[in-house]
């Protein structure tokens, strides 16, 4: 059974969207806990090879945390953006720790090897990508958000279009440009 959802997140979301930065700091751990709880529960009750559906997971958190009567679509978009950004932070922090651990080296190995994470197989340096995304955000915040939602947040083009309330074509165009720009930026480092 899931514990009752924490209250007050709706108000925090609304305050944040009205420019209250402190509301975001208060909201992040609550959303994090909720996402974690849902991910754990889903993996527990579903079959072992099940992969989590990003949209369903974030949506479940959204529905549990947010009182739908008090919000609008912008708030929902912000919530999805927030979840994607959280995933980005989790992965980048993890990548930074791994880098640090490698430099430290010499750790005693036991029966398990550190799993090769699949994003390493995808050949993306997450730390470099994160830096490049920070630069992109200053030039084109929407393109940055699209990359965040698609790559880190696992949303489809159609879902991103719905969240951002623009056409899928626009998302596709922005995505192509953002990808080319990030790739160039990372190659030039």
């Amino acid at each position: 059974m899931l514990d009752p959802a924490p209250t007050g997140v709706t108000q925090l979301l609304v305050n944040w969207s009205n420019g209250d930065k402190a509301a975001l700091d208060e909201m992040l751990p609550l959303v994090y806990q909720e996402l974690r709880r849902i991910a754990v529960n889903r993996l527990r009750r579903e079959n072992p090879n099940h992969t989590l559906q990003p949209t369903a997971l974030v949506n479940e958190a959204y529905l549990r945390l947010i009182d739908q009567r008090d919000v609008n679509w912008q708030n929902r978009a912000q919530f999805f953006g927030l979840a994607a950004e959280m995933m980005r932070r989790i992965l980048v922090n993890h990548a930074l720790h791994r880098q640090a651990a490698k430099r430290g080296g010499g750790a005693l190995r036991v029966s398990l090897e550190v799993a090769v994470n699949s994003f390493e197989q995808k050949d993306v340096n997450l730390v470099a990508l994160d830096e490049a995304l920070k630069n992109l955000a200053t030039i084109d915040p929407r393109q940055c958000r699209i990359v965040e939602m698609k790559f880190f947040g696992g949303l489809t083009v159609a879902e991103i279009a719905e969240v951002l309330q623009v056409s899928s074509d626009t998302i596709e165009r922005d995505w192509k440009m953002a990808r080319a720009w990030l790739h160039l930026e990372i190659s030039n480092r």
Binding site: Y32, L35, R36, A39, V40, L43, T51, L52, P54, L57, M87, R88, I90, L91, H94, N117, S118, F119, K122, V124, L126, L129, V147, K150, F151, F152, G153, G154, R179, L182, H183
Partner: peptide, 15 residues
């Protein structure tokens, strides 16, 4: 380049 999504990895880290 950045095709696909790393959401699964992030969720795994969450768990």
């Amino acid at each position: 380049f950045i095709q696909g999504s790393v959401f699964g990895d992030a969720a795994q880290l969450l768990v």
